[in-house]
Design a binder for these strands. Structure first.
Lengths: 102, 102
DNA sequence: TAAGAAAAGTTACTTTTTGTAACTTGCTGA
DNA sequence: TCAGCAAGTTACAAAAAGTAACTTTTCTTA
């Protein structure tokens, strides 16, 4: 695949945020930590893809995964500082959608 | 596919902006009108998908397509008012990427 | 003493999206 | 008459996403 002539960091950002469900997952996490099943039932995303996305976001340091050894086990996902820093962008998209869609 | 419990307008927005290449195409158009081939060579996007994305964006009233009957024909794509309204969101993503990536 | 149940995934398989590269159409200039 | 350009489109291959059933561990209930 060719290289972009555009800003490589924006490209990288869009490689993450532009993947299906990623931004909606982050939007959900803006409200606080959530468990795997909570996110899965709040969004029309399959467990397979949710698992994949959360791993990517964790790998990028945007999301943090915490395991609580209860029974049954509880796993919570939350935003790191880097993740919280995306709030401005997500809110802008939200506002645009309110102003311009439907 | 299930319904989202999240804001349906944000979901709709992400259905558009979350498609591969869409935001980078819009970013390019923030700099002014561009021809099909200009966008195609600025981004690592295939003509097939570029064509598809531009049609979606046109259908949504975000991008405008103008044909100039020159020889060979010239076609220019530019942002509508609705498209320009996305600038804030795109700039926020750009800033985040500058601040937090690599 | 099984037989669920619940949470967080994973697996195997199907359907959709993307990517690639070649082709089309209309006109021009050599 | 042939080559070339712009803006796509087509046919086919590869990658990503959707679906549903299954796994694992530890209680709870019948």
């Amino acid at each position: 695949m060719k290289e972009t002539k555009l800003c490589p960091r924006l490209s990288k950002a869009m490689e993450l945020l532009g993947k299906r469900w990623t931004t909606l997952i982050l939007y959900q996490l803006l409200e606080g930590p959530h468990r795997f099943n909570e996110i899965e039932s709040a969004l029309p995303v399959s467990g397979r893809i949710l698992s994949e996305r959360l791993k990517e976001l964790e790998r990028e340091g945007i999301v943090e995964r915490k395991v609580y050894s209860e029974v049954p086990v509880r796993v919570e996902y939350s935003l790191t500082e880097k993740g919280v820093a995306l709030e401005g962008a997500i809110r802008e998209i939200e506002q645009w959608s309110q102003a311009w869609l439907k």
